[in-house]
Nucleic acid binder design. Structure first.
Length: 857
RNA sequence: GGGGACGUGGCGGAACCGGUAGACGCAGCGGACUUAAAAUCCGUUGGCCGCAAGGCCGUGAGGGUUCGAGUCCCUCCGUCCCCA
């Protein structure tokens, strides 16, 4: 018998699919549509098995839905702007466009080799002017709508690389690349007004019933809606400043603790601080120190609390005899609320840390349930739990929620404050001082200000020959590019040299696939047909940013009339990573899996360096990374076992949402399955055509229809590992039936079914065996098998019989037998009867088709 | 500190609604084939007692609800993720 040869079989069928244009999606077809999309990759140049797993999952869904009669859209593109290309350009003096282009070519080849049923005619790359020009188009439309604006904003500034860093790029207060201590700087920035949609983005989560609960919760927390009080503390005595209002306005979510206030703190970026700094260099010096470190809340939280007593005093709003000092503090964020807080050290940990450091009073006003007012003290931990309000005049005795309401009502009645809803979500700063990104399509004119580039002049293309040899923005350094003519006054002007965050690029690509070559950014008719994406698949690391930005942009574009849907992704699945063990020599050097030989010595696994024979330490399975050298390339596996084995393995060993550990033993298991399937078809229908054992044939038909049902339901429930387990069982059943000489028609049905069930997972093999049994046409276009309930469900059930909850026997009963019939069978059963001697049956519980439990005494 | 998820054989995991725990795979052990090995195939493998029939225990720990709990509830321990 000839062994299955993936090297010959796989390319043959890929060519056949191409030839037939089998996976082209037809916009407007009357068949029901199904849009399945995996998060598009960054073209790093190397496909790793993590990609393979992600795309294999999408492909299972795509092939399954296609077979079920859906008109499937399954496209692929490239998230092609971003820093790695600039780094490569800086290190090797090459053009990022060329570098990216070469990577795309290489990765496209590798992706194609996976046999994914993609409609490649819709391929797009975000670095293509055809794409980013459309992005500039809608960016200007949102500018017109007021959803894009410019303001001074705080950014993470890396003084060495001379660039703005995203919060994620600041590690322990230092730039991830330069290691320089990051400063908070005020810079003119472009923002998208995502906060306009905060409430809708929050409400919309409730409709996403096919999203993981976890992701919805993360978005809810990220949006962070809170109810609270905006309240003004009036300055005590005469107004101390020229321009300031007559007080400091704070926002609090804990108005119930107002009587516990012992100070006011304003952000270093608060106008009050700015005014004080302007006339006092010492204050200015403090503010500079306070701005060191990153801008993320976590970092600000972790940083040491720094404060400056301004000497100013304000009156307590409910007790004009009390005066509170006004401090400038580094832990107060200008972007959240009003940029000023009142400090209640007893019931807020940050305030407590601050108060202890600067010797401010700590006044408890919430009494924990089991505590006594006379003895309760706050030491190093603020009390944030439930309790009764005390030390608080008119709030005394209330619980926290009632006290909040009472405090807000009083502030409103006195005209010094109002209840307010505040979101943690902040507007999205989208400008990057980078050369390899989508240029912001505006022109700065000394006379006319910020002028949009006229639509007819789009796209604003990146120039060729950018110089990335120095840090900073290559676009700004370009000798001529930025010189432009003002579209309004025709005077000399300058182009904006900022580019857009790559998250902007990825926030709408799914809406471009319906017609990737359309003249408008989005072809409305095509998008109306295809959107929303029915099934989106990607890593959970995008739970907040990418998925939230996409939801926002979809709404903004819908309001602009470019789209009809408001939610882009009806179904979301977050898949786990592919991990691998690590190997290192005694000396500590990491070794690649290919450099190590694993031997099973009895029950223990040992690893040896192939080159030297020395023992190697086997480490935990970890996320694949270059530094630990535990990366496995799909190409290597494809060379040995073929891509079908790789596809089966990455889906078989763990549930899709969980991490899977890559092991060579695992792929070999998948390879064995492929060979077993192949062998069954090779044995073929040589004998027993038509004739044969009828009983074995009927049994095989039962197995066949059970397999159809089980595999279908497993795929629908995203339980690919279970689907593959059922395939293993079905192959075993087919084999047994062959050995039992089951009748030929039953075997033909089984083999035809097997080919179709295995097709989503191992499409090349399936296509080959489909041909072997003489089926005509491409299996990729063949319909999914349908199970006959009469065969998929047994007509006789074995019901375990429990006595007092312990299994003591079983009875055979016809499917659907009533409780009474089953009970009769139970008592007729000798084994059961023997066990019931001398006891009284108190109760009989029959769960039809499931189980029987006898309660005895 | 807050929120969430998870914890099942030597390993990855299955058990979808509370109804036979351990499907399927890996590894192991025994065997067939072979001069031998690889490959392949067959058998076996949660623990304890027993020649066997069979029995007892068993889903991180402890408690609860229930005729019945891996699954639901409470407390604790551990791991991971998100927010801080």
């Amino acid at each position: 018998m000839v062994r299955y040869n993936p090297k010959a079989v796989e390319p043959k069928w890929r060519a056949a699919w191409d030839e037939a244009d089998a996976f082209r999606a037809e916009t407007g077809s009357s068949r029901p549509k199904y849009y399945v999309l995996e998060m598009f990759p960054y073209p790093s140049g190397q496909l790793h098995v993590g990609h393979a797993r992600n795309y294999a999952m999408g492909d299972v869904v795509a092939r399954f839905k296609r077979a079920r009669g859906f008109n499937v859209l399954h496209p692929m593109g490239w998230d092609a702007f971003g820093l790695p290309a600039e780094n490569a350009a800086a290190e090797r003096g090459i053009d990022p466009a060329a570098w990216t282009g070469e990577n795309i070519v290489r990765m496209r080849d590798e992706l194609k080799r996976l046999g994914l049923s993609l409609d490649w005619s819709r391929e797009l790359a975000t670095c293509d002017p055809e794409y980013y020009g459309r992005q500039q188009n809608w960016f200007l439309r949102l500018l017109e709508r007021g959803l894009v604006y410019r303001k001074e904003g705080l950014v993470n500034w890396d003084p060495v690389d001379m660039t703005v860093l995203a919060n994620e790029q600041v590690v322990d207060g230092r730039g991830w690349r330069s290691g320089a201590v990051v400063e908070r700087r005020k810079l003119n920035q472009w923002f998208l007004r995502i906060t306009d949609y905060a409430e809708e983005l929050l409400q919309g989560l409730e409709t996403l019933d096919r999203w993981p609960e976890k992701v919805r919760l993360m978005q809810e927390n990220w949006i962070g809606k809170s109810r609270g009080l905006r309240l003004t503390f009036r300055f005590a005595g005469p107004l101390p400043l020229h321009h300031a209002s007559d007080g400091v306005t704070v926002y609090t979510t804990r108005p119930d603790t107002l009587y516990g206030a012992s100070f006011i703190a304003v952000s270093p970026d608060h106008p009050l601080a700015t005014e004080l700094a302007a006339r006092d260099p010492e204050v200015a010096g403090f503010i500079a120190r306070a701005r060191q470190g990153g801008t993320s809340e976590a970092e600000i939280e972790a940083a040491e609390k720094l404060g400056w007593d301004t000497g100013l005093r304000v009156e307590h709003p409910f007790d004009s005899k009390r005066e509170l000092p006004v401090w400038i503090a580094n832990f107060v964020l200008m972007d959240y609320g009003t940029g000023a807080i009142f400090g209640c050290p007893a019931h807020d940990q940050r305030d407590l840390d601050f108060a202890r450091k600067y010797g401010l009073p700590v006044i408890p006003v919430v009494l924990p349930p089991a505590e006594d007012a006379a003895s309760f003290h706050v030491k190093q931990e603020a009390y944030v739990g439930p309790g009764r309000i005390y030390n608080s005049d008119f709030l005394d005795g209330l619980d926290i929620e009632s006290a909040k309401a009472a405090a807000i009502a009083r502030a409103e009645a006195e005209g010094i404050g109002e209840g307010a809803t505040v979101f943690r979500l902040r507007d999205w700063g989208v400008a990057r001082q980078r050369g390899w990104g989508c240029p912001v399509p505006v022109i700065h004119c000394a006379n006319c200000g910020v002028v949009p580039v006229p639509v007819g002049q789009l796209p604003v293309r990146l120039p060729e020959g950018l110089d990335f040899s120095q840090p900073g923005n290559a676009l700004a350094r370009h000798p001529t590019w930025k010189h432009a003519t003002c579209p309004r006054c025709q005077g000399p002007a300058e182009r904006e040299t900022d580019t857009l965050d790559t998250f902007v690029d990825s926030s709408w690509y799914f809406a471009r696939f319906p017609d990737p070559h359309a003249e408008p950014p989005i072809d409305k008719a095509a998008a109306d047909y295809w959107l929303p994406v029915d099934q989106y698949i990607g890593g959970v690391e995008h739970a907040v940013l990418h998925l939230l930005y996409s939801r926002f942009v979809t709404r903004a574009l819908a309001d602009e009339g470019l789209l009809s849907v408001r939610e882009p992704f009806a179904g979301l699945f977050t898949q786990g990573m592919v991990t691998h063990e690590t190997y290192r020599r005694q000396s500590g050097e990491w070794l690649e899996p290919g450099e190590v030989e694993i031997r099973n010595e009895g029950a223990t696994r040992r690893a040896y360096d192939i080159a030297t024979g020395e023992p190697v330490v086997i480490g935990e399975a970890e996320k694949m990374s270059k530094s630990k050298r535990n990366v496995v390339a799909p190409a290597d596996i494809a060379d040995t076992y073929g891509v079908d084995a790789a596809r089966i393995f990455v889906l078989s060993d763990s549930p899709p949402e969980r991490d899977v550990q890559w092991t060579s033993a695992g792929v070999e298991g998948a390879w064995r399955l492929i060979n077993r399937i192949w062998a069954e078809f090779e044995e073929g229908l040589d004998h027993a055509e038509g004739a044969g054992d009828a009983a074995a044939g009927l049994e095989l038909r039962h197995s066949t229809h059970k397999a159809i049902k089980a595999v279908t339901e497993a795929i629908e429930g995203f339980r690919f590992n279970s689907a593959i387990a059922r395939l293993y069982e079905f192959v075993a059943a087919v084999r047994e039936a062959r050995l039992a000489r089951a009748s030929g028609d039953a075997r033909r049905e089984a083999l035809s079914t097997l080919a179709r069930l295995v097709a989503p997972f191992a499409p090349h093999l399936a296509e080959e065996v489909w041909q072997t049994i003489g089926e005509s046409g491409l299996l990729a276009l063949a319909p999914w098998p349908v199970w006959d309930p009469g065969l998929a469900d047994d007509d006789e059930r074995i019901l375990p019989v429990q006595i007092n909850g312990k299994r003591r026997g079983e009875v055979r009963a016809p499917a659907g037998a009533s409780a009474g019939e089953v009970e009769k069978l139970v008592f007729e059963n000798e084994e059961i009867a023997r066990r019931l001697e001398g006891v009284t049956v108190r109760k009989v519980i029959v769960v039809p088709d499931r189980i029987v439990n006898l309660v005895v005494a």
